[in-house]
């Protein structure tokens, strides 16, 4: 029997993996991928709650749709910034882009 906790633990694991990628990958595209993983873990949560807590309503699923939309927009803008970084600094590594300091 698969319970809600199973899904939540899976989601938490996926989220942590996403954070690890966000904190460690040097490649900007890799960072964006990690973020997509985190979005997915959030979506798993939403849909799991939708199924187990509010099966009559579709609130969780609708939220997941919005999250996917936002994720798409984020990926679009993020990748545009990566292209820009590549063009202007000739770099896609986020630790190279460290101008925001003294």
């Amino acid at each position: 029997m698969v319970t809600l906790e199973h899904y939540l633990i899976l989601s938490a694991l996926l989220f942590c993996v996403g954070i690890f990628g966000l904190l460690t990958r040097r490649n900007a595209v890799g960072v964006l991928m990690s973020i997509e993983l985190m979005f997915n873990s959030a979506n798993i949560n939403f849909i799991a709650f939708s199924k187990f807590i509010t099966p009559e309503a579709l609130t969780g699923q609708i939220f997941a749709i919005f999250v996917i939309t936002i994720a798409a927009a984020e990926a679009t803008v993020g990748l545009a910034i990566v292209v820009l970084m590549y063009r202007n600094f000739n770099a896609v590594n986020v630790d190279k882009i460290n101008f925001m300091k003294w």
Binding site: T24, R25, R26, N27, V29, A75, L79, V82
Partner: peptide, 21 residues
């Protein structure tokens, strides 16, 4: 889209360089 970006920037994403900070 990601794959496009990877392909655009592929000369900088060589596998020999360190991928982890």
């Amino acid at each position: 889209l990601m794959i496009f970006a990877v392909m655009v920037t592929h000369q900088l994403t060589g596998t020999t360089m360190r991928q982890v900070n």
